[in-house]
Amino acid sequence: MIRLKNLTVNIDGSRILDDVNLIVEPGQIVAVMGPNGSGKSTLAKAIMGDPSLEIHGDILLDGKSLNGMPTNERANQGIFLSFQNPPEIEGVKSEYFLATSFNKEWDEITEVSKKLGITPELLSKDLNVGFSGGERKKMEMLQAILKNPRLVILDEIDSGLDIDAVKLVSKFMKTMRTQNQGVLIITHQTSLFDNIRPDKVYILSKGKIVEEGGPDLLSKLNDFGFEGWN
């Protein structure tokens, strides 16, 4: 489904990602694990085509290169990025944003919101403005579910979420898997995988993939932490 081939990314001349190779097949849940500052969020934004990044190498979706494609078109090709730090969008009401930009029926929006514990009051506020960390993540989940993308990239989705919401994230990933869609989950902790085993794990350190393997890598991580790869 998505393939990163020799992906190298610079920001203002300094190298953030170095020759990264990564594959997510349909129906797979793939984890990218790494400590803070290892380049995880940059990886997510590179796939989304952030114009502020200097990108070398290839990002292929179903074998076709996404190089040079604007972010919104990548989104329309079925890639969804759940942001680690969703920004505040002043003057744009959440419910208005969901109804117009997502083109969804109001019933569906309220139903999913309810499951996620998003109150109508929150929906009536400007998008992410004054939201707590957890509320922002729930709003990202709500949008991911409504978009029903082919590939979802979840960047530190679990930080700030309560147990019920984390369960919902797991459930969402399972659904994605059964629908033969892809999940690329970026995180620095293993707790999210208590309920669901990833198919593949990549360890990212200082911009490089230092190890790749099956879910067993998680127990190694739990035992030794990221220190083992330094």
Binding site: K45, M48, D50, P51, S52, P70, T71, N72, R74, A75, N76, F80, L81, F83, P86, P87, E88, I89, S101, F102, Q143, K147
Partner: peptide, 15 residues
């Protein structure tokens, strides 16, 4: 804010 622009565009909204 470039981050805000990227965020909105990542939802499929044109520039």
């Amino acid at each position: 804010d470039k981050e805000k622009l990227l965020y909105l565009m990542s939802r499929g909204i044109d520039e």
